[in-house]
Design a protein around this nucleic acid. Structure first.
Lengths: 204, 204
DNA sequence: GCCAATCTAGATCGATCGTTCTATAACAAC
DNA sequence: GTTGTTATAGAACGATCGATCTAGATTGGC
């Protein structure tokens, strides 16, 4: 029994993601956001509380729409060793086609906004756990299937993959070059293979 | 024939590094900086031009005092395979003892301030090349000595090492945990070893 | 048709931003 | 000691920050 919203929350959140992703939290003003979202400042505050609340919602939506979507789509669709490879190759492809050098909003948040905001830090830390868990499932399954090396624990390997993922996304923001990102990935994927030789790699 | 500086440029730059490293470029105000540097705002502008110029000088000094110092010290002092290992272990040690979670000012700059400032971007990009070149020298020498695998090109391996380095430094800011960073490193170091078995690793 | 509730746009708030100005202090050269 | 030059401290500048207020518009319930 009141006046309804004139905007679609998902659409304006996508616009907010765009600004925050490109410029970060501090360098994006509420006026920038309201312009990009095509709503008035008062509507922004009415709907999302404050700049902080908007950022948290935008970050969560970003994670859902990019990483979580990717994991949900890839993991059940192919064997674990391939899932890891496709996961990384999709991310490199996106990094190379990112003409604005936005990089990765997760990494940007982890570096810029999370360290001094417990709410942001929690979102980032929890999600890093999710990615590590995804890698861990893939590596463990791959080891059981005999397509991933047992020379290292699944725990260590999944941590290495997490580290490489973050490194790729840093480079995506500052040196998004095909030779760099694809060259970087080759030894890492081979690291998963048994010393007796790879089995199940898409790259052969 | 004029009034001399009352402050030591290196000392006040160290103070500026401290603030910028912890909070980043945007979230650090000139008043924060002047307080930490214990000089007046006018002296800051007189000596460094503007906030941007101060940041550039602070970042370059940081790179000199941490990374470049480490490379200069380690590279001539030990065989290449050990140099890589010691390099990473020092960085993990520093990451774990960083109670303020400052992470790495290079990575923080790459993510937060470099993408929209050509001057900062140049400093970061040039330095990433330096680190990659260090890894490339170590890997190439190690391959010639037979202590690093020839299964991948020195170019690819050094790119992987660069990626892992950046990943470690992202995690240092948000999840500085020993089990994570040390676990992450093990498969990466083993990646350098020949499939026939490691030779020259410090970890055995 | 009126009420209560929630939306909208735009003006406006005090605070803080990066930067500059004013006035004075400390040196070297002569 | 005077002069020229640069450094100092602190006030001050206009601009912009995140956030709120004012006023009016739009709905459902009665």
């Amino acid at each position: 029994m009141a006046r309804p919203r004139e905007f679609d929350e998902g659409a304006v959140l996508d616009a907010a993601i765009e600004r925050f992703w490109l410029r970060g939290y501090e360098a994006t003003s509420v006026r920038d956001l309201a312009d990009e979202m095509q709503i008035a400042g008062a509507s922004l505050y009415n709907a999302f509380g404050d700049k902080r609340g908007l950022y948290a919602k935008a970050l969560n939506r970003y994670l859902d729409q990019t990483f979580r979507e990717r994991i949900r789509r890839i993991e059940p669709a192919m064997p674990p060793r391939e899932a890891i490879e496709v996961f990384f190759k999709e991310i490199i492809k996106r990094s190379l086609s990112d003409k604005q050098r936005r990089g990765c909003m997760l990494v940007n948040s982890a570096i810029e906004s999370a360290p001094f905001d417990p709410g942001f830090l929690s979102i980032v830390a929890i999600f890093l756990d999710e990615v590590e868990a995804f890698f861990l499932r893939c590596v463990s399954k791959g080891q059981k299937d005999g397509v991933v090396t047992r020379a290292h624990s699944a725990s260590d390997l999944s941590k290495s993959l997490l580290g490489i993922l973050l490194g790729i996304r840093v480079l995506a923001r500052v040196r998004p070059e095909r030779a760099l990102l694809e060259g970087l990935l080759r030894p890492v994927l081979a690291m998963l293979d048994d010393a007796r030789g790879p089995r199940g790699s898409l790259s052969r």
